[in-house]
Design a protein around this nucleic acid. Structure first.
Lengths: 388, 388
DNA sequence: GTGAAAGCGCTAACAA
DNA sequence: TTGTTAGCGCTTTCAC
C-alpha cells in the first residue's frame, strides 16, 4: 500500500525531505527569513514547486500572529456609498496582500458587536468600520485591548483616539447649501438619517434632546462652533461627532451666515430605517414648504425625488435639489442632479493604507486623521425659487 | 513578578486549571463533544466565563479542518446586482455561523485565479463565485481537488457538475421581449455585456465566431434548441452556458417566434469594460434604428438611457426600454422603467444554503441546480412604436 | 466520565 | 549557514 503523495497536500517536512534539508531550513527558504544559502534556497524552492507545496496559512498564522486578513464592518453594502468604499477596500487590500472579511450590520449595534467579536475570534490583523454609535463603543475598545488596530471610516468617535478616514462633512454641507442660498432660496429643507437614533447625539442647537454624547469623553473638543470655510485647502477641522449631525451643522451654519434665523424649521433628522420619502413628504406638505431640498445620500435623494413627484412638483422649476453622493443614476435622470461627490473608493483605499501602516508598524505615533476633499458637481437640479 | 492573567488571552489549560480538570475534559466541555458530566461541564463553563475564555479559532481550525468561512468571488461589488447578492450571502452566512471572505475580480480571469488560490490557502470551507469564464476553469477544478465545495452563482459551467443557483435567463429574456413584441415593436435592439469576451461562447446562430465552448465537454447538453415557455411553473430548463448568451438566446427565440427573420440585426453583445452607452448609440444611429431596447443589467440600462437622451429621443414615445434588474432608481426616474427583477438577495441566500449543505454533508448526492423565478415589473417605459 | 499523551503544520530559539 | 528542539492552542485517540 504505497501512499499517494498527491493525495495529501505537501507539507514542510515533505519539501525538506525532497530537498534533502531540515525542516527549519526549508521553512526559512520558503518563508524567506533568517539566512539560507542561495543554492539551498534554490533547491528548496524547486522541491516545493515539484510537490506543489502551499504553506498552511492557518499554522503559519498561529505562530506569527498574523492572518493577513482585514475585518470590514459596514452598515449596508447595498448603499452605493458603502459599495464604493468596500470596492476601494478590497482592491487596495488585495494589492497589499491582504484579504477582507466582510460583515453587514444594518446600523444595528448588536450585530456590530457580534461582528467585531467574530473578527477578533478569527484573528484579523485589523478592522475598518463605520461605527453605528459614538457612545456604545465597548466592543471597539475591546479591539484596542486585543491590540487589534482599528480605523474608523466615514464617522469619527473622538473618545477612541484611533485612525480615522472621513470627508469634511460639515464644510461640504455648508458649501452645498450656500449654492442653494446663492440661487436665492430662503426656505431650504434637509433630510438625513442620523444613524441609529438614540445612539448618536443630536445636532447643535435646539433640535436636540441631546442623547449622551462623547461617551468616555476624553477629548472634549470638536463640539465648538465651526468657522465657515469653503472646500479645498484649509486648516484641520475639528473632530466630527457624527456624519449626519455634522452635515446638519454645516447646513445650519450656512443658513445662519445668510441671516436666516430659524434654520431648523426644515430639518428632518430621521433614524436609520425610517422612510426618507415620508420625511421629505412631511416637509413638502408644510403650509410654507421649502423651495429647495438637501439630502445626505443617494438613497435619501431617491426618496425625496419620489416625494417630490408624488406632490406633483418639478425639479428644479418648483423645487431645487442637492444630494450627497454621486450615484450612477444622478447624471442620467432628468434633470441631472447636482451633487456633493465623495471619493468613495479613495476613502476605502486610505482606510486600508492607514490600517496596514498601523499593522506593520510603520505608522506615526498618534492617531492619524485623514480628511478627504469632496467635490461639488454642478448639474441641473438647482434653479431660483419659483416665487422669484 | 506575578504574571497578569488578563494580559494574555485565556487558553484551555488556563480554564482547565481554574476548573480543576484536565485539558481534554475542558476541551470536551467547551467544544461540546464526547461525554462530560453535567457538573463538570458546568464548572468548566463557569471557569471559562470567569476568565473570559475565547477559543482560538485558528488552532481549532487547524485540527478540525473547518474555518467556518466562505469565500465569495464576484466581478464587481458596485454593480447593484452583486451588491444585493453579496448582501444576501453575508446575512445568510452570518445567521448560520459563517463568515465571508470577499474578493472582486472585475471579470478578470487572472484575478479570479489568484482569488481562488488565496481562498484555498486560507482554508475556506467553501466558495461561491460567478465565474468569469466557462472554459478556463482549472482553478475551479482545483477547488474540487482540494475537496472545497463550490457553488456557482448567476452563471453555469456545465463541465463542472457542481451546485448552481441561477435564474432562468433565457425564459426571462424571452418573456420580456415578448412584451415588446406585443406592444407592436418589430425592430428591437439588445445591449448586453457577455463577460470577458473571448472566454464566453457566443450566442447560438450567426453572431458567433464560436469560441471554444463547454471546455472539458462532459455533459454536451444544454446547447440544443429551446422550446419557448413562459415564466412560472415549468420543466427544468437545460443548463445555461452564459448569462449574457442565454439572454441573447431568449431574445432571439422571442423574435423568431414572432416571425422576425433576422433577430441579430440589433443585438450588441459587448465585452466587459466596454461602454454600454456607445453600444446603444451605435444601434440608435442605424439608418433604421430599433424602436425598443432591451438591456441586461441596470448599469447597461443607464448607458442606454444616456445614449437615448444624447440622441434626443424620449422614452417611451420614441423608444421603449426594458432592462434586467430592478435597481432602486428605476422606479423613481420618469418614465419609470419596466424591468425584469431578479431576486438578488435570495440568489445569494440560496447559494449559501446550498454551500453549507454541501459542507456539512447534508446535501443530495449529485449537483443541485436551483433556478429562481424572475418577476416582470410593468411600469411606464413601454409604448407602441412611434410609427404605429 | 476522565486523564495522559500525541500531533496538526508551522516558526523560532538555540546550538553547532 | 544549518540542524535540533520546543511549542503555538487545540482536538483526539486511547487507556483507565
Amino acid at each position: 500500500m504505497t501512499s499517494h503523495r498527491t493525495q495529501r497536500p505537501a507539507t514542510i517536512p515533505d519539501v525538506a525531505r525532497e530537498a534533502g534539508v531540515s525542516r527549519s531550513t526549508a521553512s526559512r527558504a520558503l518563508a524567506d527569513y533568517g539566512s539560507v544559502s542561495p543554492q539551498t534556497r534554490e533547491r528548496v524552492h524547486a522541491a516545493a514547486g515539484k510537490l506543489g507545496y502551499r504553506p498552511n496559512q492557518l499554522a503559519r498564522s498561529m505562530i506569527t500572529g498574523r492572518t493577513h486578513t482585514l475585518g470590514v464592518v459596514v452598515a449596508d453594502i447595498q448603499n452605493p456609498f458603502f459599495a464604493g468604499v468596500t470596492r476601494g477596500i478590497t482592491d487596495t487590500a488585495r494589492a497589499a496582500g491582504y484579504q477582507v472579511l466582510l460583515a453587514n450590520t444594518d446600523e444595528d449595534l448588536t450585530q456590530e458587536l457580534s461582528a467585531v467579536k467574530m473578527l477578533l475570534d478569527k484573528h484579523v490583523d485589523g478592522v475598518i468600520t463605520a461605527p453605528a454609535s459614538p457612545s456604545s463603543t465597548s466592543h471597539l475598545a475591546a479591539l484596542r485591548e486585543a491590540r487589534c488596530p482599528l480605523v474608523l471610516l466615514d464617522r469619527e468617535v473622538p473618545s477612541l483616539r484611533t485612525d480615522t478616514v472621513t470627508v469634511d462633512n460639515r464644510g461640504a454641507a455648508e458649501d452645498a447649501v450656500r449654492r442653494l442660498l446663492e440661487a436665492g432660496h430662503r426656505r431650504i429643507g434637509m433630510v438625513t438619517l442620523g444613524g441609529s437614533g438614540e445612539h448618536w447625539p443630536h445636532a447643535e442647537g435646539r433640535q436636540g434632546e441631546t442623547g449622551k454624547d462623547g461617551a468616555d469623553g476624553q477629548e472634549g473638543d470638536g463640539r465648538g462652533p465651526y468657522g465657515g470655510h469653503g472646500p479645498g485647502r484649509r486648516a484641520q477641522p475639528p473632530a466630527q461627532v457624527s456624519t449626519g449631525v455634522e452635515r446638519v451643522n454645516g447646513f445650519r451654519a450656512a443658513l445662519l451666515a445668510a441671516g436666516i434665523e430659524d434654520p431648523d424649521t426644515y430639518v428632518r433628522l430621521g433614524v436609520h430605517g425610517q422612510d426618507p420619502a415620508a420625511l421629505a413628504a412631511e416637509l413638502l406638505s408644510l403650509p410654507q414648504p421649502p423651495t429647495a431640498l438637501f439630502t445626505t445620500d443617494s438613497l435619501i435623494a431617491l426618496g425625496a425625488l419620489s416625494a417630490i413627484q408624488e406632490a406633483g412638483l418639478r425639479v428644479p422649476e418648483d423645487i431645487s435639489l442637492i444630494t450627497f453622493d454621486d450615484a450612477d443614476w444622478t447624471s442620467v435622470i432628468r434633470p441631472r442632479l447636482s451633487v456633493v461627490a465623495q471619493p468613495v473608493q479613495e476613502l476605502g483605499a486610505r482606510a486600508v493604507r492607514a490600517l496596514i501602516a498601523r499593522i506593520e508598524g510603520h505608522a506615526q505615533a498618534g492617531p492619524e486623521r485623514v480628511v478627504l476633499d469632496t467635490t461639488f458637481i454642478s448639474r441641473d437640479s438647482i434653479a431660483p425659487p419659483p416665487s422669484c
